[in-house]
Design a protein around this nucleic acid. Structure first.
Lengths: 220, 220
DNA sequence: AGTTAATCATACCATTAGGTACAATATTAA
DNA sequence: TTAATATTGTACCTAATGGTATGATTAACT
């Protein structure tokens, strides 16, 4: 990191602190729902300061989103790779770490990304921001797929045969929990949901249930 | 229904058709994201017609939401009570009927209610509309609870012992699928997710997984 | 046909949206 | 102390927001 010393008035606010505040506004209201008045008020700065520091609303959103990923997503990863811990326990710890955050009263309930991703279809999210949100969406699923295909225990349990499907199931459960958390469902209740989806994955769900006359068991 | 015949110019548009169009706009953009320009353009009427017919944006939203419930939610119920069909199959048919709708290209992807409910936390949804959205949210869960507590097969399988938790699991899965569908995940892929959660429910997930040093197995 | 009453289209209102110009204010280099 | 530079606060811009007033249209009832 290069620090260039220049003369001029010093910035009164801390960029990271302001970014944290912006993140919370987008987390609660989404990109479209968050107005510049909302943002600058929470960031405790005025519009020219915001524009000179971050560019515009979209650029601020992109930085806030990256801030969320760095500070609110990656922190849970440790639980997934704890040594000498059964796979199921590691998955549960990881998922409950996320669910705990979704239900916390310290910050907006639910998931920043789930909310903003759901705004894309409305057509009011600028292209670059939209692209970022879509790109991010593959990361958690890829993480699960890697785990199911490389973890010794996963392979010995045969879970790697349905790595894609199992990963999608867990990721879908997390998104469902995000929606539930936003409606104020407690993490205690959602723990049961996590247990259930993990039971389904570990029980093996290969015996597909018939739908009408056709049977579905392929993932494309 | 009382029809009052009065003199005067006849309405050029059909109220239900207009409501259907409004529903699709709210479905795609949410309450906050949908502007009156968006709405009246899709409804193919102009603002005074909209205001004289429906009241205001909130009243239109409430009617559109009720329209959604009547025409897009209740249609799936039949699958849940098909005679001579195993419980698991009925649940799968019901859930896949919903997921199929979430993934359809005939209308906006995902779920109208999940999107709009997620906007409540932002504080920009008027009170009456917000109350409706919150009230609706208990219906699907209640539906599952009733089923698990009254269905013969459910009871014989012991599923009624975790009626609350199992219901929450299925409802959470549906909300997760809604989020997934909005990001264009196919119903074929989501069928695997539904199979997995059903496997979890029917396998019984009573054997809870330890989280750190504490064990969670209660639903409050 | 003429009266009555409801709907329609246009234009408009106040407010808020995202975004800037500009002058006042701090800060450093000289 | 002064010149140079960057940040700040205020005021403003244009476009879009939810919502209306108004007068022209159109249809039913007498």
């Amino acid at each position: 990191m290069v620090i260039i010393v220049v003369s001029g008035r010093k910035r009164k606010f801390d960029e990271q602190t302001a970014l944290h505040a912006a993140m919370e506004v987008f987390w609660a209201k989404g990109f479209v729902g968050a107005s510049l008045a909302d943002l600058t008020k929470s960031m405790n700065i005025n519009k020219p300061s915001m524009y000179s520091t971050f560019g515009n609303k979209e650029a601020l959103f992109i930085k806030a989103t990256q801030y969320y990923i760095e500070n609110k997503m990656k922190v849970h990863l440790d639980a997934l790779f704890t040594p000498d811990t059964p796979l199921k326990t590691r998955l549960k710890n990881y998922m409950m770490s996320i669910v705990g955050m979704q239900c916390s009263t310290e910050q907006p309930k639910g998931c920043y990304l789930v909310l903003c991703q759901s705004e894309i279809a409305g057509g009011d999210i600028p292209e670059e921001a939209s692209k970022l949100l879509i790109d991010i969406d593959v990361l958690p699923k890829t993480l699960f797929v890697d785990l199911f295909t490389t973890d010794k225990e996963a392979i010995s349990l045969g879970l790697h045969h349905h790595a894609q499907g199992n990963s999608l199931s867990l990721y879908t459960a997390l998104k469902g929990c995000a929606a539930m958390a936003r409606s104020k469902v407690s993490s205690t209740e959602l723990a049961f949901v996590i247990d259930t989806i993990l039971a389904g994955v570990f029980a093996g769900n290969n015996e597909q249930t018939k739908v009408g006359t056709i049977t579905t068991n392929t993932i494309q």
